[in-house]
Amino acid sequence: MTTSVQPSPASVEVEQGTSLWRDAWLRLRKNKLAVFGMIAVTVIALACVFGPMISPYSYEEMNWEDISQGPSWRHWCGTDDAGRDMLVRLLVGGRISLAVGLCATFVALIIGVTYGAVAGYVGGKIDAFMMRVVDIMYALPFTIFVILLTVFTREIVTTYQLGPAFDIMLLFAAIGAVEWLTMARIVRGQVMSIKKMEYIEAARSLGYSPLRIIFRHILPNTLGPVIVYTTLTIPAVMLLEAFLSYLGLGVQAPMISWGSLIEDGQRKMEEYPWLLLFPAGIFSLTLFSLNFLGDGLRDALDVRSSKD
């Protein structure tokens, strides 16, 4: 941890590039599965963001002439029973799935890092109490709570007539609010070991405020595990979102996500199997890729396995 964390622009030259991050990048590049995961995620994400813009079809426009067609040159992934182009629907659904994954992970990241850093830095009784709270929350039935939270937020959205976008935002918050526990534990452990180092003592003797020490001097050095765990949280959150949408508790029509597309495809799979196969395939591929990338990052950044 003595290497510089953010290389200055001047240190880009090869002979100076021995930072933690450069080493990690070199190791990551050797891991074929992780590289594959990175490329696949990038391609899927770019396609989801830009694909619907260049496609001649829209995700909700029905076309009664092209009902329930198999994959063809006109519709690469076929059409559903309202004649809507599946490829565009997949990409738009992917936008929502990815957005939920990113935003909820961001919420979890902020809560978890702050909570863990404070507990680890303050220590003593406050730390013991804060971690006991985390222990108790660990024991709660997670998914069940998320289901309750989504029902709760749904009611609020319908009662106060907020838009569907708000529904999704509350979903992010609900998922993020329960996914931060492991992050808090990891950051706390890191902070506890870092705060004993000499340079922190030096910072303290210079009279810096605890907040400055935590955010400026300690947290940057916990980045490795935080990045790894963040990468692994994204697929976990996407899985949870798809699970909720599959059960009909997640995003609501006309909005779509991969989970709701899978649910829809399952009901029609007997006659039109492609309606199930495409969303199931792209969703699994994304999860696979993100997990490979996360595992690769863990090896590359040499983070000890701290799952579960």
């Binding site: 798809a242 699970f243 649910e263 799979m269 199930l276 699994s284 997990n291």
Partner: peptide, 19 residues
């Protein structure tokens, strides 16, 4: 098994084995 959720494997299994 770890990367594929039940709601993906389940419908696929129904499609192949049952239907």
């Amino acid at each position: 098994g770890i990367s594929t959720p039940t709601f993906v494997i389940g419908p696929l299994a129904v499609l192949v084995v049952a239907i």
